[in-house]
């Protein structure tokens, strides 16, 4: 008998890291489904490939670091990183680009910092940003024309596989620039009514993309409902993006309108699945609000005045950088104290 050796509490609560991550992955399925319906097999194939490679890489590095492989794989975080990359990368991204993204995410951004919990940056976004700056062509010309577009066709499973793994270049009929890209470059020399005639917008706000974003929004609401994520980051992110758009981009003839900011690109995926990565986000409620708002702000700034049409990865990484600073200034007031106390400044 091993009496008297354990510390209170003596009963575990219901939460498990592995289970939480599995729920997050499950919540991303509606979005993935919409991606598959509107943009073909690409994202699904990417996702499966990235997850497998991510878990494999994690296992390999853990083995090299002489850590218990099975124990750490059970937390499902490597699989989630793979999933997020699979969802973020353009559907027809060549396999080796995805592989570079995954390997740098797991090896550079996560394991070299000491593994789960020790990484200051969101691993998936490190991988994404790295391939985005390294292979801009692959990352911008591999978006698929959404289903229902008249002059385009959705690539079939075999075609998609051969493009991703076989190295063949996608034919023009398969690809199309993203709505954010089209609007940003189009509005410079045309009116909103002219720009939106582009097939990528379809009849609604952004053909296909609106459903993808709705899918991720639904998944995100599910995570909120299950209390797996807190509302602070997504709400402040979307609110600050909206505010920026209303203040600086109220005229759709000059700037991308709010509707397009919210329901196209990776906005919902970013707000509910990427920015909420707890390891690299701020910790207190107030800190989370600031962190989310910062991402929303940067997102708008880069999308509008930067070179990239979408900017989730850069916005998240930049805010990751400021997390220690935010945490320092947002320590909550403790019970019985008159005001919050900051490290180094004393106070009651």
């Amino acid at each position: 008998m091993n009496r008297g050796r354990t510390s209170s509490p003596h009963q575990p609560g219901p939460n498990r890291t592995g289970r939480l991550m599995a729920w997050v992955m499950a919540a991303a399925l509606p979005g993935l489904l919409a991606q598959t319906l509107f943009f073909g097999w690409g994202n699904l194939i990417n996702t499966v490939f990235c997850i497998a490679l991510s878990v494999g890489t994690e296992a390999a590095v853990l083995a090299l670091r002489q850590r218990p492989v099975r124990f750490f794989l059970r937390d499902n975080t490597a699989a989630l990183t793979g999933l997020l990359l699979g969802l973020s990368l353009p559907p027809l991204t060549p396999w080796w680009v995805s592989a570079i993204a995954v390997i740098s995410a797991i090896v550079l951004a996560k394991q070299l910092y000491g593994g789960l919990g020790a990484n200051p940056f969101n691993p998936a976004m490190v991988g994404y940003a790295l391939v985005l700056v390294s292979f801009p062509v692959a990352l911008t010309t591999r978006w698929v024309a959404p289903a229902g577009t008249e002059e385009a066709v959705l690539p079939g499973l075999i075609e998609t596989l051969s493009i991703i793994f076989g190295g063949s270049t996608p034919v023009d009929a398969f690809t199309m620039a993203t709505p954010l890209d089209v609007y940003k470059h189009g509005i410079a020399g045309a009116l909103a009514s002219q720009v939106t005639t582009h097939p990528t917008f379809g009849d609604g706000i952004a053909r296909g993309w609106e459903w993808v974003n709705a899918g991720f929004l639904a998944g995100g609401l599910f995570l909120l409902w299950r209390r797996i994520i807190s509302w602070h980051i997504p709400v402040s992110l979307l609110a600050s993006l909206a505010l920026m758009s209303l203040v600086f981009g109220w005229d759709p003839d000059r700037a991308t309108p709010l509707s397009l900011h919210l329901v196209s690109g990776a906005t919902m995926l970013g707000a509910f699945f990427i920015a909420t990565d707890p390891v690299s986000a701020a910790t207190s409620h107030r800190g989370k609000l600031i962190y989310g708002a910062g991402i929303g702000l940067l997102l708008y700034v880069i999308r509008t005045w930067g070179t990239y049409p979408d900017a989730i990865a850069f916005a998240v990484l930049l805010m990751n950088l400021s997390v220690p600073f935010i945490d320092h200034y947002t320590q909550p007031r403790t019970y019985g104290h008159r005001k919050a106390r900051r490290v180094g400044t004393g106070g009651a």
Binding site: F71, D75, T77, G115, L116, G117, A118, V279, T283, K288
Partner: peptide
């Protein structure tokens, strides 16, 4: 397992 700073 390692702390993931979930804040729960």
């Amino acid at each position: 397992q390692p702390c993931i700073r979930c804040g729960y």
